[in-house]
Write a protein that binds this DNA or RNA. Structure first.
Lengths: 110, 110
DNA sequence: TCGTAATATCGCAATATTACGATCACCATA
DNA sequence: TATGGTGATCGTAATATTGCGATATTACGA
């Protein structure tokens, strides 16, 4: 035993967890930041920007895509990736919800 | 090789990644939600609420505490955990920043 | 001080992640 | 049809996570 007991939690909890997990590695945070900075949402210049191999970056891109945080469309013989606003907003409103409940509560208890 | 190449990224990226990673498991999302729901921020009723052993929950609590997402104070012979607003707000404003940059950009490119 | 409830930690097994080199597949264009 | 650039995938090694039972540890009350 020891595998992720992922079922036995709600859909919502799993959905948030999987988005958060995708952002749970500095390389992927860096990739998202890069995609935001580059205005054209260009593709694999990323390989030159990060100290990781092409294979590894491709894996991270896949993780981000699986989580719905980015999407890519074929653009000639390259691929154009960009951040998917919908998913970002979903995470954003979830965190905002937590934050709101906290301030509604008033004092932090401990 | 194969270990996390975590260095070679900025402090900020690592900080966000570690907070996000802490939320990257449904059990931990569930724990945070529970701590928000319970008004008194009570301790280990959690063991009864989740289908996980006490040892496992204690581990998840530690992960959340290490990430700064919760804090605990000793309360008699029990422990009172609660969500740490400061860290939630940090994540919140980071995600809001991404979201803002996206809408500033106008159309999603791909 | 003894017993008991609440937590933390240790040690282990199962599984997942991270990273890379080596290919493979695809498309454009020479 | 070759050739080169772009990206995905495979195989593999190193490491991390997840989960649990067993065992501390700590604090309270009898």
């Amino acid at each position: 035993m020891g595998a992720s007991k992922t079922d036995s939690f709600t859909e919502g909890q799993q959905a948030i967890a999987s988005i958060a997990k995708a952002l749970g590695h500095p390389a992927r945070v860096a990739i998202v930041e890069y995609l935001l900075k580059v205005d054209g949402c260009i593709c694999n210049d990323i390989v030159d920007k990060l100290p990781l191999s092409q294979a590894t970056i491709s894996q991270h891109l896949r993780a981000l895509k699986d989580a719905g945080l980015i999407k890519g469309s074929i653009e000639g013989n390259a691929i154009c990736y960009c951040v998917e606003g919908k998913t970002v907003k979903r995470l954003q409103s979830y965190i905002a919800g937590i934050s709101a409940k906290l301030t509604a509560k008033g004092t932090e208890c401990c």
